[in-house]
Design a protein around this nucleic acid. Structure first.
Length: 752
RNA sequence: GGGCGAGUGGUGGAAUGGUAGACACGCACGCCUCAAAAGCGUGUGAUCAUAAGAUCAUGAGAGUUCGAAUCUCUCUUCGCCCACCA
C-alpha cells in the first residue's frame, strides 16, 4: 500500500472534527454494563492550557481509552473551577468583569482541550460560577447550617483597622495593608466555619486503608488531622490540655495564649498591654518565622493540683489560642519548648517522676481546625443567609435559591465586602418576621465549590437536588482520581468530608468518593527549574503541538518519565517520539498477508501483555518503551503481517488516538473507529520460547549464559552439566562446587 | 524541628532479591548526497588492553544472603509537604 507523508496536524484536525460531529465520546449510562469513572481534577480557567494540564489529562485519557477498549463504559467528564481570587485580581488589573474574563478563558481553554484529542464528554460538565451550579452550593450550605455543620464563629485573622476588613496573606506587604498602608493586626473576626472537626475521626485513614490512595496522602492527611489523646487538668480555674499528665509534678509554670479568656479578665500592667499589642501585630507568617520565645508574666499564680505548690502564669504566643484550651502546663524538664522559655525567663526547671496521676477529664484533640469558608470577596458563591436584627441568622428558603451574584457591582477593593455596597441586592425583608434585614455579603471559599463537583458531573442538569441520587449510586464512587500532590491536605480532604456529610444526609451510601487516587508529578522547564514567566523557561504546549502534532506531545508526556515523577522537559527528546510515529506511519507500506513466525508472535503477545498491564497500573512510560521495542523488531522485517500491524495500532491507540485512527481506517476502509475495538488479548502459549537463556554465575558473579531447551528447564542435573561444559565457567570451577543454587529458568550459581 | 520520597551513564529513565543501564535523547563514525538537512546503519558506563578479555561500577560506609540498585543499620545530599499542636 503506497502511503503519503505523515502530516500530523492534518490527520489530527480531521479526526477531531469527525469525533466531535459524530459525538463519538458521549457517555450513555447503561446499568447492564460495568462502568468506569475516570476523573481528573477540574482546571482553574486561568487563560491558557499549559503543559501541566496536558500532563494531568493525557496519561489519564490513555488510561480511560484503554479501559473503554477493555469493555468498560467509561465516564470521563470535565469542567471548570471558575470562581476565585485570580479572576477578580485579573479583572481589576485589566478592567474586565470577572465573569467575562472567566467565560472567555473557558472558551479558549475548551478549544485548546479539543487539540488534545481526549475522550472527555463535555455534556457532563460543571462550571462552578454559573447559578445552575452554585445554587447547589447554597443548598448544601443550608443543609450544613441546619445540621450545625456551618456556623458563625470567631478566628484570628489579618485585619486592617483603617479599611475595617480582613486581608488575605498575599495582600499584606511588609506588615502593612496593600491598599492604605496601615499596619495590619491580628484580630478575632466573626466568620463562617464548617465543622470539619466533627468528622475528624471518620476522616482518619484506617490501617489497612479503605481505598487505594497513595501512602503519602494517607499519612499526610492523618498527620494533618493529628489526633492526640490527652487529659484536661484544672489549675485553679485555668484548664490545660496535656498528652503527658504523668509529668505534672514537673509543671513549674503555666503559659496561656495572648487571646485566652484569662488574659481578657486580667488587670493589665503597662508591660502586659505592650506585649499583647506586639503579639497582635505579628501576622500568622511572622509568628511562624520568629521562633524565639517571647512572653510576659501575668502577675498571677495558680496551684499545681498534684504538688500543691503555687506556680506563676505567663502569657506567650508560642501557645496557640486555637489548639487545646489555649493554655498549657509547662514542664521544662521534659519539653524542649518549655525549657527554652524557662531558660529565657529564668523560671524553675523541676525534675518529673513521670509517674504522677492527676485527676482530669479524658479529652481527644485534633490538630485539624474547623474550616473557615468566608471570603470578603465578590467572585464567589453568595452565602444564602439573611441577617435580621430581630431573628438573627435566617436561612434563605430553598424555593428562593439560587441567590444570584449580581453582575453590576463595584468589585474593586474598598474596605468592605463588595456585595455590601450593592444596596439593592443587600436589603431584603426577613423571611421570618418580614422586617428589614440584610443579606450576608460574604462569599464562599472556592474549595467549597470543588469539594463536590464530581457528583454534579453525573447529572449536570438535575434540578431537584445537587445530584441525581439514583444515578450517583450507579456511577459513583470514582474509580480513579487523577490530580496533583498539592491537594493532599486541602481539596481531597474536603471532598472526603463532603462525602461523609452526604452520607449522613442519606444522599450516598459509600464512605469514600474515590476508590483510587493517582498523583502526577511536575514537568520542569528545560533548565531544570519550575516553569515561570519570570525565568523565561515556559514551554507552551500549543507551540509544540504546532511543531510535532498532538499525538507526539501525548506520547512524549507518557514516555518521558513515570507519571508521579518530577523532571525537566526535553526539547530534543521529543523528536525521537515524532520519529517513532513517522516510522509507524511509513510501515503501512510493507503491510501484507505475510506469514508470521513463532518469534514474531512471541514478541507480539509479550507486548500485548506488557502494555495492558502497564496501562492498568498507570505505568505509561514503560508501556510506550515496550511498543518501541516491538516497532524496532517490525522495522527489521521485510514484510509485516496485517495481524501484527493492526494489533500494534490497537495497543498504540490509547496514547496516540489520531494517527492510529487514520492508519486503522486505511487498513480497514469499512471499519468503524479503532477506539471502539476490543483490546487485544494475549495468549500464554506464545509467551513461551523454545530455548531459554540461563545465566551461570560463580559466587554470585556472572560468568556465562547457556541456552537450554524449554523441556529441560526443570532438570537441574542437565543444566548443571551444560553449565560446567562452558569453557568460561570451567576456568573458574577447578574443584567440585560446595553448593549449587538453581533458580528455574533464570540463573544457576556455583558456590566454591 | 517533624513527615514522606528520592540519589543508577553526558541526559530522561529501565530493572524492587537472580544476566545493572531496557527504551529514548545526546554524542561519534559510516552510508546516501555536489553539499547540507532528513533518513538509514554501527558504536557508546568507567579503567586497562591492538585484541580476546579483565577489573571496577547504582550517593558513602557497614550488615544480612549462594547472590543486593533492590532488604536492614549508620551517615550524607537533594526534592516535596507540614511546622511552636502541649
Amino acid at each position: 500500500m503506497k502511503q503519503a507523508k505523515y502530516f500530523a496536524r492534518e490527520v489530527e484536525a480531521k479526526w477531531q472534527e469527525i469525533w466531535n460531529k459524530s459525538k463519538a465520546y458521549e457517555f450513555k449510562h447503561d446499568s447492564k454494563k460495568k462502568k468506569y469513572y475516570n476523573l481528573v481534577e477540574l482546571p482553574y480557567p486561568s487563560g491558557d492550557l499549559h503543559l501541566g494540564h496536558w500532563f494531568a489529562f493525557v496519561p489519564s485519557d490513555a488510561h480511560a481509552r484503554y479501559k473503554k477498549m477493555s469493555g468498560y463504559n467509561v465516564f470521563f467528564p470535565n469542567g471548570f473551577d471558575a470562581f476565585g481570587l485570580p479572576a477578580e485580581n485579573a479583572a481589576i488589573k485589566r478592567g474586565i468583569h470577572p465573569k467575562d474574563w472567566t467565560m472567555k478563558n473557558i472558551e479558549t481553554m475548551r478549544s485548546q482541550f479539543d487539540t488534545m484529542g481526549t475522550m472527555i464528554d463535555w455534556n457532563h460538565t460543571a462550571i462552578t460560577s454559573l447559578p445552575e451550579y452554585y445554587k447547589w452550593n447554597q443548598w448544601i450550605f443550608l443543609k450544613m447550617f441546619e445540621k450545625g455543620i456551618a456556623y458563625r464563629g470567631k478566628a484570628l485573622s489579618n485585619w486592617c483597622p483603617i479599611d475595617q476588613t480582613v486581608l488575605a496573606n498575599e495582600h499584606i506587604e511588609a506588615g502593612k495593608c496593600w491598599r492604605c498602608g496601615s499596619e495590619v493586626i491580628q484580630k478575632e473576626v466573626e466568620q463562617w466555619f464548617l465543622a470539619i472537626t466533627k468528622y475528624a475521626d471518620s476522616l482518619i485513614w484506617k490501617n489497612p486503608p479503605q481505598a487505594d490512595w497513595p501512602k503519602q496522602v494517607i499519612e499526610g492527611q492523618n498527620n494533618w488531622i493529628g489526633k492526640s489523646e490527652g487529659v484536661l487538668i484544672d489549675f485553679a480555674g485555668i484548664e490545660v490540655f496535656t498528652t503527658r499528665p504523668e509529668t505534672i509534678d514537673g509543671a513549674s509554670f503555666l503559659v496561656v495564649a495572648p487571646e485566652h479568656q484569662f488574659v481578657k479578665n486580667l488587670v493589665k500592667t503597662k508591660e502586659i498591654e505592650e506585649y499583647l499589642l506586639a503579639a497582635s501585630k505579628k501576622t500568622e507568617m511572622e509568628r511562624k518565622e520568629d521562633r524565639t520565645k517571647s512572653g510576659v508574666f501575668s502577675g498571677k499564680y495558680v496551684k499545681n493540683p498534684v504538688t500543691g505548690k503555687d506556680v506563676p502564669v505567663w502569657i506567650s504566643d508560642y501557645v496557640l489560642a486555637g489548639y487545646g484550651t489555649g493554655a498549657i502546663m509547662a514542664v521544662p524538664f521534659a519539653d524542649a519548648r518549655d525549657k527554652e522559655f524557662a531558660q529565657k525567663f529564668d523560671l524553675p526547671i523541676i525534675e518529673t517522676s513521670f509517674a504522677a496521676t492527676p485527676k482530669g477529664e479524658k479529652k481527644i484533640n485534633y490538630h485539624l481546625r474547623d474550616w473557615s469558608i468566608s471570603r470578603q470577596r465578590y467572585w464567589g458563591t453568595p452565602v444564602p443567609i439573611i441577617h435580621c436584627d430581630k431573628c438573627g441568622l435566617v436561612p434563605v428558603e430553598e424555593k428562593d435559591l439560587p441567590i444570584e451574584l449580581p453582575y453590576n457591582v463595584d468589585y474593586t477593593p474598598k474596605g468592605k465586602p463588595p456585595l455590601a455596597s450593592d444596596e439593592d441586592w443587600l436589603n431584603v425583608k426577613c423571611p421570618k418576621c418580614g422586617g428589614d434585614a440584610k443579606r450576608d455579603a460574604e462569599t464562599l471559599d472556592t474549595f467549597f465549590d470543588s469539594a463536590w463537583y464530581y457528583y454534579r458531573y453525573v447529572s449536570p442538569k438535575f434540578d431537584k437536588a445537587p445530584f441525581d441520587k439514583e444515578l450517583v449510586s450507579e456511577i459513583m464512587p470514582v474509580d480513579v482520581y487523577f490530580g496533583g500532590s498539592e491537594h493532599t491536605l486541602g481539596h481531597t480532604l474536603y471532598a472526603r468530608f463532603f462525602t461523609k456529610f452526604f452520607k449522613d444526609l442519606g444522599l450516598v451510601s459509600f464512605d469514600e468518593f474515590a476508590k483510587k487516587r493517582a498523583q502526577h508529578g511536575v514537568i520542569l522547564g528545560p533548565d531544570g527549574n519550575r516553569m515561570s514567566k519570570s525565568r523565561g523557561n515556559v514551554v507552551n504546549p500549543d507551540d509544540v503541538v504546532r511543531e510535532y502534532g498532538s499525538d507526539t506531545v501525548r506520547l512524549y508526556l507518557c514516555f518521558m518519565m513515570p507519571y508521579e515523577a518530577t523532571s525537566p522537559w526535553s526539547p530534543t527528546a521529543i523528536s525521537g517520539i515524532y520519529k517513532f510515529l513517522r516510522r509507524v506511519w511509513d510501515m503501512l507500506e510493507k503491510v501484507n498477508d505475510s506469514k508470521v513466525f513463532q518469534e514474531d508472535l512471541s514478541l507480539m503477545h509479550q507486548t500485548i501483555k506488557k502494555v495492558g498491564e502497564d496501562l492498568e497500573m498507570l505505568q505509561f512510560n514503560t508501556a510506550v518503551s515496550s511498543l518501541m521495542i516491538w516497532l524496532n523488531h517490525l522495522s527489521a522485517k521485510e514484510e509485516v503481517s496485517k495481524e501484527e500491524y493492526e494489533t500494534f495500532l490497537k495497543l498504540l491507540a490509547p496514547f496516540a488516538p489520531h494517527i492510529t485512527e487514520e492508519l486503522w481506517q486505511l487498513t480497514n476502509p469499512s471499519a468503524s473507529s479503532i477506539h471502539l475495538e476490543n483490546w487485544p488479548v494475549f495468549q500464554s502459549k506464545y509467551l513461551i520460547n523454545e530455548n531459554i537463556n540461563i545465566a551461570v554465575s560463580i559466587n554470585g558473579k556472572l560468568r556465562d549464559t547457556i541456552s537450554v531447551k524449554r523441556a529441560d528447564i526443570k532438570n537441574q542435573e542437565e543444566i548443571e552439566r551444560k553449565a560446567k561444559q562452558s569453557e568460561k565457567v570451567a576456568n573458574y570451577l577447578n574443584s567440585e562446587p560446595k553448593k549449587v543454587i538453581y533458580v528455574e529458568g533464570k540463573i544457576i550459581n556455583f558456590v566454591i
